[in-house]
Nucleic acid binder design. Structure first.
Lengths: 353, 353
DNA sequence: CTACATTGGGCAAGCGCTTTCCATTGACGA
DNA sequence: TCGTCAATGGAAAGCGCTTGCCCAATGTAG
């Protein structure tokens, strides 16, 4: 249909390989081989002529044409719930660092915590022939959405893509998983050692696996120590700062007897601190507070928050590495990450029993 | 060369439009027109046959092939310095929100504050036929790198792409610019009103425009009020939390007489607070502290930080809108954003003169 | 009942690149 | 001198999609 003449002057501003080849007086094939460095050798003379022409004309390869011809792209997907959340942005920093180091391009998708968005984004990435995808964020216990996601992952994988997850289990993909249970348990033991016996927990959403595991781990460490966790001291709510704020308000309204509050993640703990401040309560004098994740902003809170440290950026890097290392293991690989209890000022021995 | 048979079974797992067309018993052209909804009409019967076949076969259009054929993609670039920095991640959230709302795909590039990376990323995005790019982060006064970037922007634009910036001026592209000067001046006036007369400033890098403008604005407001700013009270350093921390340590080592410290951005102010805490100084009793930007994490600091609020997420959205609204104004459009002084507890009347 | 739009379908020529074949060349041993 | 082989160049067939153009089948006006 000749929408544009072939090899004509400036055209719409694009310089094509054909123009470079013509300018260098070689065939398209030779030019291609020089520019992208194929397995085939090209003689010194021609090679130089081609590179010179390319530079002179300002040649820039058309990435979609290459993707189409090679049937593989330099795109790496990164799917997070909310890029403004420091938990995700830290992981994102790790992923981009690794991907950009490999000369790849990161495509960012945000789900807003809607499970079907994950599936949708994954298929968009498949349409773009992304070579790998890093999927960040915990699964919910909703089996249907997990199954749909697993199906989409399998399709993606069958078509030559690789998928790695952060903090997801039970998906047919390599995963970097924090040991939420043991981390929470270790934290619980630490807090018990401080002298706490009455705990309250901001447990996050009821259906979120990470939240449940942390609750479970914390709870079983308490049980092992012979400590009961009162039902009314476990409050569920959104996995966000505002969720933590609101949950804390609800908790305190019950007139809890707890001396220590564990929020299953740091942003919730941050919200909790704000709520307690608004209620005129002092941390840790009136109530100790601990979180989970060790997001970077945490160290600047006053009092600094006790938490379980996860190497977020490293986890992102590691996930990117899993997705890009070219291996295709029969079984999904699982890289466990241990949390480390970081004691800071927000927790102290209880002043009341 | 027939690397793969045409229209053969499952192949490498891809379903092509050709297979859909064959399955529906129509031509490739008709199938294409049904699937993407061209200007041309397709009869009810065929239309249904095609959609049914597409669904049945699980057809997913190959994005690179479409990009190649249409010579335009659904990619939107987003270039930031550091995605883990809350300033950038807030803006990024705004950009992705708008872009995803338009059905576009966001490509994230990080520069690590290296000017030549911006140029490099922009050309990568051009290679991908990104339809627009949002470029976030202040220019430096280095004219050479600004010129190179401007050149690359012009090439990008000439080839049909659109570019919008946040917080950059003097580039041939639409821009959302915070009024750094007036924001800083307003803050200065507020602080003067509180009673401060001796100021210290964490001025950030000497070559960064935003930092300079904020310093300038602050300084001229002081001058207008007849207040001198002592040379040794202006400390330069990195535009990061650690830069703020380190600058503050240096400042305090000089035995400054300032009663109020202005950090030209919030992450630096956060570092300053940490440094002061480590030095055993109280904020605001010993020293008032103020920042600029109003990043979300700020409200959780103790004391909460006085700052100049910028609607970061909105700015990101607005920039995305500028880049995607299809206009091609002759002159770059400039959307000014006013900062609003937010007085919080980190500033109080001075206790010493 | 003819002339003429109008509609909807299909053919096939691209988009810009990669890569398979094939042709040519020169080096080398027999 | 000739055949063999490795090295290197080029022609051309795709990759999967869009779309200009042609054409048959309708509807419409004269």
């Amino acid at each position: 249909m000749a929408r544009r003449g072939k090899g004509d002057g400036v055209g719409s501003g694009y310089v094509t390989l054909e123009q470079v080849a013509k300018h260098a007086g070689v065939s398209l094939a030779t030019a291609s081989r020089v520019i992208n460095g194929s397995t085939r050798q090209v003689g010194e003379k021609l090679r130089e002529r081609v590179t010179a022409s390319a530079r002179e004309l300002g040649y820039l390869a058309n990435a979609s044409a290459q993707t189409l011809a090679r049937n593989t792209s330099s795109l790496v997907g990164l799917i997070v719930h909310d890029i403004a959340d420091p938990y995700f942005s830290s992981i994102a920093a790790g992923v981009t660092r690794h991907a950009e180091g490999e000369g790849l391009v990161v495509v960012l998708g945000t789900t807003g915590r809607a499970p079907q968005r994950e599936v949708q984004l994954l298929s968009t990435l498949r349409a773009h022939r992304a070579r790998a995808v890093v999927l960040v964020g915990s699964r919910t216990i909703d089996e249907e959405s997990t199954r749909k996601l697993a199906d989409e992952i399998r399709i993606f994988t069958r078509q030559g893509g690789r998928v790695a997850c952060v903090s997801q289990e039970g998906l047919p993909a390599d995963t970097v998983v924090p040991d939420n249970r043991n981390g929470a348990a270790a934290l619980a033991r630490h807090l018990i050692e401080l002298g706490h016996r009455k705990f309250a927990i901001l447990a996050g959403p009821t259906d979120l696996c990470a939240a449940r595991d942390r609750l479970d781990g914390f709870h079983s460490a308490l049980s092992s120590a012979g400590i009961e966790l009162a039902y009314h001291n476990v409050v569920h709510g959104a996995f966000t700062r505002d969720g933590g704020y609101e949950s804390t308000k609800r908790l305190m309204a019950t007139g809890t007897d707890a001396t220590c509050l564990f929020a299953v993640n740091d942003v919730m703990a941050t919200g909790a601190m704000a709520a307690l401040r608004d209620l005129g309560l002092r941390v840790p004098e009136d109530l100790s507070v601990a979180g989970f994740d060790d997001i970077p902003t945490l160290r600047d809170l006053t009092p600094a928050l006790t938490t379980v440290r996860l190497p977020l950026e490293k986890m992102g890097e590691e996930a990117a590495r899993l997705a890009l290392d070219g291996e295709t293991p029969d079984e999904p690989r699982v890289i466990p990450v241990q949390g480390e209890v970081i004691a800071r000022e927000s927790t102290a021995p209880p002043t009341r029993s």
